[in-house]
């Protein structure tokens, strides 16, 4: 069986190597890729969409259909992690509590778990450091990280950035809270239910903007159709449409990042974990 696999791999590899001869050489100005489409995008991106960053214009407008399914792929990755990893079974081990005033760690048997009170706080079984400096610095820093993420999403028109990058930074800010405090704190800020609703909402925003373009009488994801509801000209409407789908992408990416992290680090239980 292994021999057959090896033969197939070698054959396909040889075919690929053989066919690379037919590619145009690197940086060839006469290659099909640089003659038709790229030149059009470089020349027409600003007059047609008023987006100075050509990458964003191509990503969210000229090939917006492709990017929509990229977002769906990320959504599916999040769903896949959820389906494969999530366990709806509570950890029935003993648990640990910390007496807040003295810092003493208490080991409590599973059937004698105390009621919620402000004197004791639950701590993780595996990893129990109490680090005031790291906790507070991360708590202070998280809003700035989120502000920067929103800047990256909104500034994708003018500089490198956009929905994917900004969404990852937004997700990282919540993961930072989860790492520096514990997972229960992070889940208190943004619960599992919210995360999964946001995952779907992002894709819905993207495809909803596309569907709205059909309703306004043009092609799917042809943002020029939105000029009548946005009260702008068609060029400005395309710019705003790009911004709308970037927000959708950002929301999905953020939620998927948080969901995958929570599921992986807590072995699917979403109660505790690094």
């Amino acid at each position: 069986m292994k021999a057959i696999g090896l033969i197939i791999v070698v054959l396909v590899g040889a075919l690929l190597l053989y066919s690379t001869e037919d590619f145009p050489s690197w940086g060839d100005p006469a290659s099909p890729a640089s003659v038709h489409v790229a030149a059009h995008h470089l020349k027409k991106a600003i007059p047609e969409t008023s987006v100075p960053n050509v990458v964003t214009a191509v990503l969210a407008d000229y090939r917006g259909y492709d990017t929509m399914f990229e977002t769906s792929v990320i959504f599916c990755a999040g769903l896949g992690c959820f389906v494969l990893l999530r366990l709806f079974k509570k950890r029935d081990d003993d648990s640990y509590y910390r007496h807040v005033a003295t810092g003493i760690t208490l080991h409590i048997k599973k059937d004698k778990i105390p009621d919620a009170s402000s004197e004791f706080e639950r701590i993780d079984t595996l990893w129990t450091p109490y680090d005031l400096i790291v906790k507070n610095v991360c708590r202070i820093l998280a809003p700035f990280v989120q502000l920067f993420a929103l800047y990256v999403i909104a500034h994708g028109h003018h500089s490198p950035g956009g929905g994917f990058q900004g969404g990852v930074i937004l997700g990282a800010s919540v993961i930072l809270i989860a790492i520096s405090h514990d997972m229960r704190t992070a889940l208190g800020r943004i619960s599992e239910k919210t995360v999964h609703i946001l995952m779907a909402v992002g894709v819905l925003i993207y495809s909803g903007i596309g569907a709205l373009c059909i309703l306004m009488g043009r092609n799917f994801l042809d943002y020029a159709a939105l000029s009548r509801i946005l009260f702008t000209d068609k060029i400005e409407a395309r710019s705003l449409g790009i911004f709308g789908v970037e927000v959708g992408v950002g929301i999905t990416v953020m939620a998927v990042m948080i969901s995958i992290y929570n599921n992986l680090s807590s072995e699917g239980r979403q109660d505790e974990g690094l």
């Binding site: 450091p129 680090d131 400096i133 790291v134 610095v137 202070i140 820093l141 700035f144």
Partner: peptide, 20 residues
């Protein structure tokens, strides 16, 4: 400003992890 806040914190976290 952020380097001033973060670099000592990161060093502190690494030292803490090493000590543990």
């Amino acid at each position: 400003l952020f380097i001033f806040i973060l670099n000592p914190t990161a060093t502190h976290a690494i030292v803490d992890a090493g000590f543990r």
